[in-house]
Design a binder for these strands. Structure first.
Lengths: 260, 260
DNA sequence: TCGGCGCTTGAATCGACGT
DNA sequence: AACGTCGATTCAAGCGCCG
């Protein structure tokens, strides 16, 4: 029983979830599906016709809904290419057939405010006279009811106006809501990247902490597109259990080594 | 002839544009239409059924296309309420019936990176256990062709790695592409705000400069929902001509005073 | 044949990182 | 500091297909 805990399965996630996961067993899902923009994965042909991609994402969403607990959170990371910037929103609309979009988080990789002497983050530039560099991706926070309470202060930031500390009964410490704009820089990895599309370690960590770690049993965290195991590693750092699916045996090997 | 230059008309914008503006006379449009989220304007009932609102925005877009030059830019600011975060994207999709979405700019009002000692901007917090504070709005950059060259360095920021200066023929100064995440803080207004939904002065200014000021004749800048004249004031600061429409005579009065 | 459209392929360019 | 490398890059040329 519960053989799926702390396991990574080398198989298709939708099939695997159907076969292995009972209803309502997962607290948090954090994932970044293939963006379907022609990236060459080893095992996955990443250029389906867009309609088929949408159908696939919807099937994934349906299965995620089934395995998620009633007050669970489903964090879905997706970005756009400059030439088609409404694509990720169409995906979100499609997932909304099965979930409520409770929060839209803007992952900001780079931002500058020269007047304030701020110039942070980095990105790979695009060479184009018409497109601005894209320093943004979405993290959609889907829930079943749209009304799941989250732990905003778990990822809080210090007050700017310190006089607010202690002003309300909830303001017991120097922490305020971070808002929905999250600055998370890319980790700089040069040399051969093991996976073309890994997100930073802090991203799943912040998602899990925002959902709330609870006091009782450890959370169970799922990533249907586990890649090299960033989500699972974050889950374990935070004392959670994890489940992962990944088609590519090479990535599975890396993930297992990282966790083992 | 050209009686519309440097004028603000107190009338409905779609009708006014039809009556007064010839084809292809405008270089840049910067506007923030009523969001239709129940803000109480004096003259405008801001809670149409959503379908009718979409129809209205489409009519606006059609008229904007007509008056815009072939290589003109249409900057469309819109934000979301936390409980319906795909709304602005539906509006964008609708406008896409008449325009190409060339860039999606993310207006970030507040962002924090405690590790780097950055904690900037401000917002009106929402008191909710489920919604993060919304510190984000969209600025959609629509064009007729989708291939209008823009002046990215006109709103550039300093290089982080100064060794890149002079490295390529275009890198003649310490300026690089800012990207599509723009930090623009709200101006803090204490006391009664004259307009419930004015954007910061720097917002239209950056849009106009991104489009490019050109070398020859001054640009003509249009704001169909002029409000208290923020866009017109920015246009004039930059040496451009302006045209504005605004239904509310009180706002028109303020705008004219500001420009007169 | 000519020309438009779609897919493929190679060139070019930028900013950050590493040597 | 200078330079080589690399892209969930874009862009335009080139080719085949079809009307």
């Amino acid at each position: 029983m519960e053989e799926y805990l702390d396991a990574i399965f080398c198989e298709d996630c939708v099939e695997g979830m159907r076969r292995r996961l009972p209803d309502a067993c997962i607290d948090v899902i954090v994932t970044s599906p293939p963006y379907n923009i022609g990236v060459r994965y080893n095992t996955h042909q990443d250029n389906l016709p867009f309609d088929e991609y949408l159908d696939w994402m919807e099937e994934l969403a349906r299965e995620c809904r089934r395995v998620l607990k009633e007050d669970g959170s489903f964090f879905f990371n997706i970005g756009d290419r400059p030439s088609d910037e409404l694509r990720s929103l169409q995906v979100a609309q499609r997932v909304c057939r099965h979930f409520h979009l409770q929060n839209t988080i803007h992952w900001v990789k780079s931002i500058a405010a020269p007047q304030e002497g701020v110039n942070m983050g980095h990105y790979k530039p695009v060479n184009s006279p018409r497109y601005l560099n894209n320093a943004h991706e979405y993290i959609f926070h889907f829930t079943k009811s749209g009304a799941v309470a989250v732990d905003k202060l778990a990822i809080g930031v210090p007050y700017q106006d310190k006089s607010n500390i202690g002003r309300w009964k909830s303001a017991t410490q120097d922490l305020r809501d971070r808002g929905n704009t999250w600055y998370i820089p890319y980790e700089t990895v040069t040399g051969a990247k093991p996976h073309p599309a890994a997100f930073p370690d802090r991203l799943p960590e912040m998602c899990i902490r925002l959902h709330g770690l609870g006091q009782d049993d450890p959370l169970v965290v799922l990533d249907p597109f586990m890649g090299t195991g960033t989500t699972a590693a974050a889950a374990r750092r935070l004392g959670c259990r994890y489940v992962g699916f990944e088609m590519d045996p090479h990535y599975v090997e890396i993930a297992r080594a990282r966790l083992g």
